[in-house]
Design a binder for these strands. Sequence first.
RNA 1: GCUACUGUGGCUUAGUGGUAAAGCACUUCAUUGGUAAUGAAGAGAUCGGGGGUCCGAUUCCCCUCAGUAGCUCCA
Length: 587
Amino acid sequence: MVNFKEDENLEMLNHSCAHLMAQAVKHLFPQAKFWVGPVVAEGFYYDIDLGDEVIRDEDIPKIEKEMKKLAKEGKKIYRREVSKAEAMEMFANDPYKVDLIEDLEDGHITVYDQGDFTDLCRGPHVESTKLLKNFKLVKHSGAYWKGDANNKVLQRIYGVCFPTAEELEAHLQELEEAKERDHRKIGKDMQLFMVDDLIGRGLPMFLPKGYVVWQELENYIKAKERKLGYKHVMTPCVGTVGLYKTSGHWDHYKENMFPAMEVEGESFVLRPMNCPHHMMIYANRMHSYKDLPLRIGEIAHDFRFESSGTLKGIERGRHFCQNDAHLFVTPEQIKQEVSSVVDLIFDVYKDFNITDYRCVLSLRDPEDKVKYHDDDEMWNTAENALREVLDSIGIEYTEEIGEAAFYGPKLDVNVKPAVGNEITLSTCQLDFCLPAKFKLTYIDKDGEKKTPVVLHRAILGSLDRFMAYILEETKGNLPLWLAPVQVKVLPVKNDDEELNAYANEIADALSDEDVRVEVDNRSEKLGYRMREAQMEKVPYLLVLGKNEQEEGTVTYRIHGQRETTTVTRAEFTELVKRQIANKEFVK
RNA sequence: GCUACUGUGGCUUAGUGGUAAAGCACUUCAUUGGUAAUGAAGAGAUCGGGGGUCCGAUUCCCCUCAGUAGCUCCA
């Protein structure tokens, strides 16, 4: 997928196209006032105040038409430098531009003219609107001014622009294909999960085939963790409000929690995170420095009250299962343990062939006293410690302010799903805060009580979200070890008793080796059953007829391929077992 | 939550101011087929829910629920 911000020419073209769109909108809606029109990774947008009017679907073609007309006229685009005072005068009756100009430095202000339209802009732009022919307005929506829900909703229109019609066409094609890769569509088609109004929004349910994938992920990551010395626990997904008051969630995270329930005079909440439970497990007994690091892991059910507008299949639900763990460490062990977590993340990504990700060091916003635990010294210590470790391991990352957890900074590994915004897959958080709140201690070598440091980490993030991502990356063609049905056996004829017996024998033998196998001997033609198996994305299709039965062989066909291969039963079993064990993508 | 759009049998969709159409799936019968759809018959929806306008609404209006896209990548 093209990133419009990574190509200078494309960026200039799209930025210019944003102006062209603004000009067209101004012609059709003379009352329009403009906020900002930047180039973003997916193209460009412009935020516009239309007073009481809103952009409707049917307005989009009209705006496009006006843009086409303007582009055809081919007005030259001129750059002008103006003083701050001049700029203020020019845009005096445009409060949005005034808001922008106020923050600009005198002597560095430029405006661009094209025909009857002038906009405040740093540029650069293409020399003429004539070059802006191959564009498309792709979507529109409301967007709060400055992203604050208390502000007015502006009308945002998104578009893309390319040098040639062919490139535009190819891009639009790609957008269409991305919709086909959407895990919600794949999940429905493959019968992996479902949602139902009566169950509740944001509460997906895994169907038998989807749960197979889910369980494989669970077994996979638990095995990895066991090897690294993690101990797994099981804790309830409800806790008292008092627990969350102690942890600070009640003060800093209440907005994202389901409201409390009163039972016999006590208040309980569905838990949004598992840290408090794991803290209490640590506090269950005295610890020596010799116990550390102590790694407590859990595939834990959590509930978060996500805004209805942000729900998205199994990628973001109100219930999900975190691949969570809390590592209780001494300060000296921080580096070693963070490094080990980072290694695990990339080890796992290698198994799933995940290569397109971005690391972010998420820091607090020191101005935001509501969202974050208020202790400057603690934050400085934690942020510097995490930054130092990341630098010493040598991973590349960008820093983002205001993205930290309320209790500490974190390393997030983000990926881009088929549709929509970047999501966080893995996370490793450094916490000096909660251990103190829970008064956790260990006895150090010198006999003194000390407070451990906690690393919160999730490798697969939530199993649900991870599954969503893998489905989109593979378009539902899961690697053999994850496929809900790994082998489908198709006897050529279904009323031949001997042949059926042979098919069942082979299926049973594979099943004994823990291969997930199904026999399809319905009274349908082979072509029909073959087609269905292909659409189900079953990796191996075994066709058995007289020839195979007499020779004790099987003929297989790999999903999505035409050619067939005949091998002995033993050879096939070995092949499948090897590919499952090695987590191979069948090709 | 906010803005816009959408909501028709299990799924994908057509359609209309006079109570609804098709394909797939499902059931039954026939067909026993060598690698992406065998044929026929049958059953299945009060058109998301509630209210209103109208002689009459799935179709128009209002409310509500749900789904989809987007909601700080500064001129």
